[in-house]
């Protein structure tokens, strides 16, 4: 017997018919093959990053189970044929994390899914706006790493900047080829270079 972590993406249309029966039907796929479910709970209900089988939202169901490795193949086959399971991910795990034992939070189904299927235009608009927000988050994250890099590079940069300033009085164009010859792997710092030179 090995310990596995399994995440299931469940169709919200099936979830609306009733959470408990659906939960049991998924669990039965596992137990039917001799797996022993240690803990299982609803992990989240969220908007998908992309549509799966025309669904914009889905419910995530996380379970930890003990099973024989040979049973996993059979479970996989059954899950492929299962209608409510849009997607699944079964990973072997060494230990079951503590927070897995926390009780399932209460939840109410968001009626957003119905809107998405009824009026696809509105759905796509809201999707775009939220995508923008997500993008903003990501850029914030990128900025953080940038600043970390910048702080670390600051000492090394100081000396090169002195050299650049020394070169500037001789010929302002002289410093530009040096910039161009750099490996342009990141566009943002290269862009930052230009306004600086104008100042000089």
């Amino acid at each position: 017997m090995k310990t596995y972590e399994a995440m299931f993406l469940l169709d919200n249309r099936e979830v609306k018919k009733g959470w408990e029966p659906l939960k049991e039907s998924v669990d039965s796929i596992l137990t039917k093959r001799g797996a022993e479910i240690v803990v299982a709970k609803r992990w989240d209900e969220r908007k998908l990053a992309y549509e799966i089988k025309k669904q914009r939202r889905a419910t995530y169901y996380l379970s930890y189970l003990k099973a024989d490795p040979s049973a996993i193949d059979e479970i996989r086959r059954d899950l492929e044929l299962s209608v409510p399971v849009l997607r699944y991910l079964i990973l072997s795990c060494d230990a079951i994390p503590e927070d897995a034992y926390e009780p399932e939070r209460e939840f109410t189904m968001v009626e957003d899914d119905a809107e998405a299927t009824e009026s696809s235009k509105e759905g796509s608009e809201s999707e775009e706006s939220s995508k923008g927000e997500e993008g903003a988050e990501a850029t914030e994250g990128a900025d953080v790493t940038d600043t970390i890099e910048a702080v670390k590079a600051a000492e090394g940069e100081a000396s090169t900047e002195v050299a650049a300033e020394a070169a500037a009085p001789e010929a302002s164009a002289g410093s530009e080829p040096a910039v161009a010859s750099e490996p342009a792997d990141v566009s943002a710092p290269a862009e930052a270079e230009k306004p600086e030179e104008n100042k000089e």
Binding site: T139, K152, A153, E157, E161, P195, E196
Partner: peptide, 29 residues
């Protein structure tokens, strides 16, 4: 974003300290 300060300049190969992940790196995070 358009105007970045001088410290964002990167010249040549810079040797940086390794950073460890600050949070658990798993697909749920």
């Amino acid at each position: 974003m358009a105007f970045k300060s001088k410290k964002f300049r990167r010249v040549g190969r810079d040797v940086k300290k390794r950073v460890k992940p600050t949070e658990p790196v798993e697909y749920k995070n």
